[in-house]
């Protein structure tokens, strides 16, 4: 028994994690979700932009691997924007973001009767990372002469008055890589001084706190928890809110195994026979 607890087979841990995901996902119990100040700040900014009938730029810089965490943020923010008559311009610095952004626009525009061209525009992907951002700061229409379906951006109601990045009332980056701290902040926000917010995967969130404190970023949604907080604020419960149940249980399971591992380690020392 002692040896077993010192070196639990990983398949047993996998079964616990699987049950920790499946059972809470199939049952319905509600957990209280309290928005943190960082998420509230993004919500408040979009409310302010809505009062001025302003325009938000959303950069969809993530792929299918991070879709479960970041896509609920995209859906919630788009719902919020369309409800408050905030015009949205979408773009991607990651090629895989195009399909996911299109899905998010299709879903939310149908739900809230948002019209392409007058309520939102999708520019698609452009290669070049920092060059795209610097170029957009100089000349928006020169960088994106056409949107994804091939319309001229100088003629679309949402984009015709945008000359550069500074003309956006808010820029929100939904990211799963280094585009916020590697590209949007040093080459965009720091030069063109627009308000900047971030939605990112949980693993990225700790790296972004210096930019929050410096004011280069005014808000952040971190991981599925951040997405669930935004869903709570816009009062549209979705996959992130539902995901909080399995995530809470799995966190408790992991903590249980960490504590068990440490208790056994201090009682009986290092396990013999290596790991399985």
């Amino acid at each position: 028994m002692k040896e077993f607890l010192l070196n639990i087979d990983r398949r047993i841990i996998f079964i616990f994690v699987a049950l920790g995901v499946i059972i809470p996902a199939l049952t319905s119990f509600n957990l209280p979700i309290n928005p943190t100040p960082n998420v509230q700040s993004i919500y408040d900014t979009i409310e302010e932009v809505g009062k001025e009938n302003g325009t938000v730029l959303i950069s969809f810089d993530y792929g299918p691997g991070s879709m479960p965490e970041v896509q609920p943020m995209a859906l919630s923010v788009l719902r919020h924007c369309f409800k408050r008559n905030v015009k949205v311009v979408g773009m991607c610095l990651w090629p895989q973001g195009v399909g996911l952004a299109q899905q998010a626009f299709d879903t939310t525009s149908k739900e809230l009767d948002a019209e392409y061209g007058s309520d939102y525009v999708f520019l698609g992907f452009k290669t070049g990372f920092q060059s795209v951002v610097v170029s957009m700061g100089h000349d928006f229409h020169g960088t994106f002469p056409q949107d994804l379906p091939g319309n001229n951006t100088t003629e679309l109601p949402v984009t015709k008055n945008i000359k550069g990045l500074a003309d956006f009332d808010y820029v929100l980056c939904l990211a799963a890589g280094n585009t916020p701290d590697g590209i949007w902040i040093p080459f965009g926000q720091e030069r063109y001084k627009f308000k900047f917010g971030l939605g990112c995967t949980a693993v990225m969130a700790p790296d972004q706190f210096p930019y929050l404190q410096s004011g280069q970023m005014n808000g952040m949604m971190g991981g599925l928890a951040g997405a669930a907080e935004y869903e709570t604020l816009v009062q549209a419960s979705g996959t992130a809110t539902e995901g909080m149940r399995p995530q809470s249980v799995v966190h408790l399971i992991i903590i249980f195994f960490i504590i068990l591992g440490n208790v056994m380690y201090f009682l009986y020392g290092r396990p013999k026979g290596g790991t399985q």
Binding site: R10, F14, V17, I254, F257, L260, G261, N262
Partner: peptide, 14 residues
Amino acid sequence: AFFIASAAYRTFRA
């Protein structure tokens, strides 16, 4: 998620 749980149990020791 599965590998993190297993790795945390094995390596996260005080």
